[in-house]
Design a protein around this nucleic acid. Sequence first.
DNA 1: CGAGAGTACTATAAAGTACTCTCGGTGCATTATT
Length: 481
Amino acid sequence: MIEHNLKFYLKKYFGYSSFKEGQEEVIKALIDQKDAVAILPTGTGKSMCYQLTGKLLDGTVIIVSPLLSLIQDQVEQLRFQGERRVLALTSNLTYSEKNYALQNLHTYKYIYLAPEMLQNNEVLARLQQQKISLFVVDEAHCISQWGPDFRPDYLELGKIREKLGNPLTLALTATASQQTINAIMSGLELDQSATKVVRKSVDRENIFLSAFKFNNEQDKLEKLFDLLNTIKGPGLIYFSSKKKANEITEKIKAKTSLKVAAYHADLDMNDRFIIQHQFLDNKLDLICATSAFGMGINKENIRYVIHYHLPGELESYIQEIGRAGRDGKQSIAILLYQKGDEGIQQQLSLNNIPDNQMIDYYINNKQQFAETDNESIQLLNKISNLYSSKEELQSFFLQRKRQKFNSLQQMLQYVDTNECKRQYILDYFEDNKKIDHHELCCQKLNDDLPLKELGLIFDENEQKSLKIEEFYKIIDKIFRT
DNA sequence: CGAGAGTACTATAAAGTACTCTCGGTGCATTATT
């Protein structure tokens, strides 16, 4: 009966009169007690999928989320909508707050937490006593992207689900290849044949795709500044190194009138918050960032995403350029590749994976490693708990190494390909969509950018009208208060 | 891994060569003290 009235409840609880693409399909599956994996582009209301379902089912919704800032945002959003039974079960709580929350878990409808928190015995025990209507994993690509070598607790979610009595489950993400979808399902121990997969095309038609290749850094820098002086912002430049992000930020400050800031993990939370909000308020023209910048940041009018270094895999690349053009207006992705840049990625990922010899040594001396401050050994400790034999562990890392190597090769092929870059991406994601290649779709390596045709040339008059817009905003604020 | 910076060497001196050194991302929770 409920499913016929989904729209009614959408209106009743959230005030919307229609669903966005994919939402209804996901919610219907969940109401039918069917697990679901949903790959929906950012901005299409992924969280509505569990928010509405939560209202309709009896019990608590648990949402596993990778970042405290994301949890914060979601909690605020729900509270703003009038839902008071929301809990952010994180390390931000004081000891007594946490205690109170755990004693009163049954009073909450939505509980947000990071996967690490589920490793806490008391938290798990309390949750086991709850009636859980839905177990949600937000940003579920983290299972395969972060689980194996960064945040291993992502690999434990399957076991956690089991300990919680295999509750109805929903995995959400914006970008996932078939390989990633499979990793998500097996990581969560979902029955592949019984899981509903809802997947919308990853294609973002309003983002023009381009790449350039350089023999030395001087040429690359020249191109970068050439771009910065002509292209319309606001924009984002991605780096694989914090040092480089700082360095180029200073160069841009010195050589242009652009307002720019660097953003990476060396900044404290306060600075990050300030920079993020200045950027959102159009008080910064661009940000030089590492991969720390992105998840959960919703700025609509980013016009360009430049990559000064290439990421380790196409999936990350798509996530990063996908931050452009959320408003649907024409935007551009420009990859600046210099021969040898892949060495950074190789060092960052590939060479950090232990080889057979190291695993051998680790297994033979395991007791010595039980208590350690070394993060990579802590990681090894966690992962080795998932496998019963040395051979299994070795093959896990070998497979990981191969996978990373292949991902990097595919990234390089993307740069080099003379075919339609958009089609290359869609084929990689096993997206069935076929592209009708046209002039404003993408271009071959080193072709001149059609910035004029794309309407992406920096225009002073437009800057002025932007300032008028700002002026109206200020007036608006004054009159409201 | 591999690029770029830095250093030592050569020996008319200056600038080129060869060598070594350095560097590289993402965050949760938790601890014991102030």
